[in-house]
Design a protein around this nucleic acid. Sequence first.
DNA 1: CTTGTCTGCCC
DNA 2: ATTCTGC
DNA 3: GCAGAATGGGCAGACAAG
Length: 565
Amino acid sequence: MKVSTLSEYLDRLERTQSRNEMSQILAEVIREAEKGEASVLMYLLMGRVRPLFDPVEFGVADKQVMKAMVRASGVTEEALGAQYRVLGDLGLVWFAVAKSAGGEKMEVIFLYESLSQIAAESGGGSQERKLMLIEELLGKLTANEGKYVIRILLGKLRLGFSDKTLIDALSISEVGDKGIADKLEYAYQVRPDIGFLVQKVKEVGWKRACEGVGVALGTPMMVMLAARLKTAGEMVKKMGSVAVEPKFDGTRIQIHFQRRGDWKVKTYTRNLEENTYSFPELTKLGDVVDADSLVLDAEAVGVDTKTGKLVPFQMTMTRKRKHDVAEQAGKVPMVFYVFDVMYKDGVSLIDKSYEERRKILTKAVKKNDWLRVDEYKLVTKAEEITKLHQLQIDKGLEGVIVKKIDSQYVPGRTGWRWVKMKEAEGSTGKLSDTIDAVIMGFYSGKGKRAGFGIGKFLVGVRRGEQIVTLTKIGTGLSDEQFKQLKNALDKLVATKADESYVIDKTLVPDVWVEPKLVVEVAADEITISPTYSAGVSLRFPRLVKFRDDKSVQQATTIDEVKQMI
DNA sequence: CTTGTCTGCCC
DNA sequence: ATTCTGC
DNA sequence: GCAGAATGGGCAGACAAG
């Protein structure tokens, strides 16, 4: 397939909003792909050159791509930046400034090779080499083709489809409708590589491609996630009999173990990245399990060496490293709370019920101190969920996960099988109170929000006569509220930061505004911040509502914020 | 060698 | 992570 | 309700620049 053909398909996709229609178009792409080309096309459509679980990344984003665009177009960085703030998409910026070069009919395979080379460059001088390669590539493409290539480099085609839609499309390409999407999804779940799946289906047909697939050691599988419901009552209504488990504030880890073989343990993150190197303590896994092979689902949490208590999330995350792991493991050892088993001794367990898997799990782990099978309580009443939730909160945990006891292990967060509960019913965030913060400035938006002229904004709190920065806010507003806010802020635009602002150079907004507007902000936690001038910041900040009724003098103070810790 | 910027990935 | 929105 | 796309803080690592 030619790149020009691909870009015509992408043009069509860009014009359609209906995902059903998108699936049809994508099915055409799959049908038209030549042998050996299908996998490559799928990766490109996902804004990548390799499957999710391969650690191959482009290593360029906004800043570097913009530099390459400066070179390829001759337009200054300032001019491109200005366009970017208006259009909210570097692909569109390129389309606007690119000279109508190209003309060469490039093959998709060639494009793929070029992009792979960009990803492969590393070491001293690699940034320069990446820039050259991008510049060269753009020079061979039309402005429209370049638009899509830039979006691929940024990992966002922004066309309204992703892997799920590609699976629907694959089903359509094979049988004319979404009839086999379930089976394909299952195959994708245990090997989340859309390029591999499409290629295989095209080569051997969907029946053989889906035949006998199951969890495989050494291949990360997609994990089950917890949805959210507002009340315990809704949980009981949707799920019936449930198990309530503690929710630990650490990092999700999928553990693959085999007693014999060229490796013993491999671990993966929630997003399927391999992170075996981060957890040297798991080399001893064979001592504490009664099995020849396992795939486990767990939460890794650091412990305080003095008190034995679990450490805060930020401390646990210091283990997300490649270097000096052993040293860090001494400072912050890990424990692993195991809550599920997806495979044991050659048998895939994801089709078994929660209760069955739990029984197998309990038997598979021997009594020990660091690989802990977490507790679960079977419950049928809403009040019991609420009570257990409060119990975990009192213990200092994040909350609870409520699980439907007869449910299979299904990836993603759909279907009301697992539901999380963090804050108490009726409250907006886990933080006991909301904060009334002052809007200090705002930033242009990307994608849809470019049209609003605002995508997020900077807020602060009072410290004496000063206003110190606390967090940026980019969620909690409806489209309508974004438009309203932009209108209101336009009347407060200032040419520079107000004298009362204590600012940090990395947080300079696109537009400063006078300190007039107050907003109510919710969050889950107050964190010690290395970046914000308040010295603290918010974890998961979101807007609750505009507080036009409040003056800046009535906004929350830094002392009040610190008392909430 | 240190510092700053950018990126990717945890939540 | 949270939240909003078109289908 | 699903799937997708906006957006958050903050950590380590890779490079480039000084």
